[in-house]
Design a protein around this nucleic acid. Structure first.
Length: 152
DNA sequence: GCCAACGTTGGC
DNA sequence: GCCAACGTTGGC
């Protein structure tokens, strides 16, 4: 069992969209580090912190779980998709995606600035300088701390 | 393999 | 809108 943090811009896809959809495809990732994790490391049943980025109040807003482990991101070879990439083909897929399912929406969202003030979260990758990956692993204690704070 | 130019992310 | 911190591209 691994734990992850997934970033999403709420104007594109928010926790409320996930509440509505229940399950969604996490597609369109076009970064090799993130791709490698989606392909090799994100497993069914893994737990996810859903995080809103690039918005007025960046914050962890809920949890989800992996419904389907990595499989080829077919939006890459669909020219009409939002993130087409002609270098990826059905025969040789270059990009991967996973499916995630809604688990919970936090009673209180945990703002980025609050995370910075919590010593238990100090070593979380989200808070490291220069972090720009859209998904990355976190520790169990990070997940549990965020869930605990979100329930208050 | 090096590195400059460029593009993107994301907090502020 | 600004800017730091990347990642990617492409000439050499």
């Amino acid at each position: 069992m691994n734990y992850w943090l997934f970033k999403s811009e709420p104007t594109s896809y928010s926790i409320d969209d996930l509440v509505r959809d229940t399950t969604m495809r996490w597609d369109g990732i076009r970064n090799y580090q993130a791709r490698n994790m989606l392909r090799d490391d994100v497993k069914k049943g893994d737990k996810i912190i859903f995080y809103h980025s690039s918005c007025a109040e960046p914050a962890a807003v809920g949890t989800a779980k992996v419904a389907r482990a990595g499989y080829p991101d077919f939006t890459a070879w669909d020219p009409s998709s939002e993130n087409p990439d002609a270098k990826s083909t059905p025969e040789k897929p270059m990009w991967f995606m996973v499916d995630i399912t809604f688990s919970s929406k936090f009673k209180t969202q945990i703002r980025l600035k609050d995370m910075h003030e919590n010593p238990r979260l100090a070593d979380m990758r989200l808070l490291q300088k220069g972090n720009r990956l859209s998904i990355f692993p976190i520790l169990k204690k990070h997940f549990e701390t965020l869930v605990h704070l979100g329930a208050q």
